[in-house]
Structures are given as C-alpha cells and as structure tokens.
Amino acid sequence: MHNIESWLENNTFHHSQWWNILALIEEKKRKNLKISLCIPTFNEEATIGKEVIIFRSELMERYPLLDEIAVIDSGSTDKTCEIARSFGADVYFSGDILPEEGHHKGKGENLWKSVYQLKGDIICYVDADIRNIHARFCYGLIAPLLYRDEIKYVKAFYDRPLAYSHGKRRSGGGRVTEILIRPLFSLFFPELTALIQPLSGEYAVRREVLESIPFPTGYGVETSHLLDVYNKWGLEALAQTDLDQRIHRNQPNHALGKMAFGILQTFLNRMKAYGLTPLPEITPFLRQFEAQEDHYHQILHEIQEEERPPMNELSAYQNRA
C-alpha cells in the first residue's frame, strides 16, 4: 500500500531529530501556543515522583517548553497524589472535574477530564509507570505538532534495541497489539497498521482534536482515538516518534485479557458507528513491520484461512472402506 510507505517515510520520527529544545521553544512562542503535560494516574507512587521531577526540571525550569504539568488521578489509595504535589505538579482528582457529568474510573476518563481542566493548545499524555523517564518522552511527541501544522496526533513507539548485529529487525508492539490490534487493523483499516505501537500510552494531541472526539473511559481510549482521528482527518493527521527504550512493569496475561476485551468492545462499537456492519469484505493480508536502520517497511503476509467441511460430509469419507 503506497500510502503506508510514504507515511512511514514522512510521518515517522526519531526523538533525536528534536534535540534542540531551544528551537522548539522558539517555534512554540512564534505560534503562540500553550502546552500541557497530563499524567493520568492510579496508584503509581513508585514512579510518579521521578516523572514529575524530570519534567519540571528539564521542560519547565531549564527549558520552558511546558506551561503546566498536571496529574489527573482516578482515586489512588497510595501516596501518588502526595508525591506528585510535593514535587510541584498540579494534582486533580478526576471526580472533582466536571462533577455534574459523573465519575467513571479509568484512564480514558482522566484523559477526557483533562481536556476540560488543562489549558494547553497541545496536550501531551505520558503514562505514570515509566521507570526510565526522560524529557524526550515529552518533547519527542510535541515537536512534530510544532513544526507540521497538518499533523494533529503524535504517537510514541519504542524501537531501539540496545544492540543489534546487522540488517533488518522485526518491529512491532506488545502482546495485545500483535495478537489483537494489528490483525484487526490489517483486516479493516490497513493504513493504521503503519502505527508501530498503536497502544502506547504516550501521545501529544492538538486541542481541536481532543475536544471533538469521544473518549471511551477505559482500555479502549487509544484505539478509539486512532480510529476517530483517521476517520475524520485521514492518515496524514497522524504521526509517530521513536522514543527508544521504555522500561515499565509488565502486565500479566489476565490483565492483558481484560485490556483486550475492552479494546475489542471499542473496536466493534466504532465499526458500527462508521456503518461498517455487516462486515465488509475481509482481506487476507496481515501487515507487520520490520526496521532497517532508520527506515520502516511493511511486510505483507497473505494468510488464507480456508475452511474444510466436516469430514462426514465428504463422499470419500462416507464411502471409505
């Protein structure tokens, strides 16, 4: 698919392209933009302090790229809020924002409430469980929005192995991405397979997008965002930045099962909303990706799931000796 190859070439970045944070700040000033960082949390006391310290020091005090750092919390029972507040983040309980709209527990709810609460023209979302946090997790996502007006939504992916011998390497996402999302996208929205890690929790988005799309309150929020942005503005509105390594806690299979269930619900709801039911013609191509140095290429796998009839319908079977 030609569009995927050209999109990979033009809309896929590496954070090192944006090392000059002073230039980003100039561009931000020139465009008179405000930028907010939102960290959605629920019991993240082990990692939240470090994130707030690094972002405040590097992207507010030292290089004022961010105008606010906010933690939107779902009701943590540990010290998440206390720690975040002690290091200078603005901390909000999600239920206190737009109380007349009620309160749902979940990451998507926090993100939705952040659109109301935060002031930024761009909001950058970063998950709170990253152990190797660095300023690039923010500026790497914000930068494409500062330089390219047509880009509206920048997604993170993580693709730098510490060592790789040579040549091509298989590139892709986590277990839920490879087992659920990539097959679904390959079947129904092939262009979206170009996103190496569609479920990554880090992305920067223009307010005009955030205020005009619905938010599932739980696991499906990343999937629905991609589908809605793609449906409304096309692939060109999306971009992705390689942020190298991301070290975080690994989810057990049963937690991934819940996540997959939520995502599948969202996906089917979107199919219905876009009028794609009954199901359109199903293509036999699974799209995966490989990386060669800085370039990404799709690999097309034709997987024909032919179906055999019950053996007892075969006359040969019925007549066998």
Binding site: I54, S57, E61, G88, N132
Partner: peptide, 15 residues
C-alpha cells in the same frame, strides 16, 4: 523552591 533542578540532575546522573 528549585529542588527539581538538583533532584533531576541527581536522578539523571545516577542512571
């Protein structure tokens, strides 16, 4: 009041 500068440097150097 500027504790993050020192604390962030400590974290970044330490890693």
């Amino acid at each position: 009041a500027i504790q993050e500068i020192l604390l962030a440097n400590t974290v970044l150097f330490s890693e």
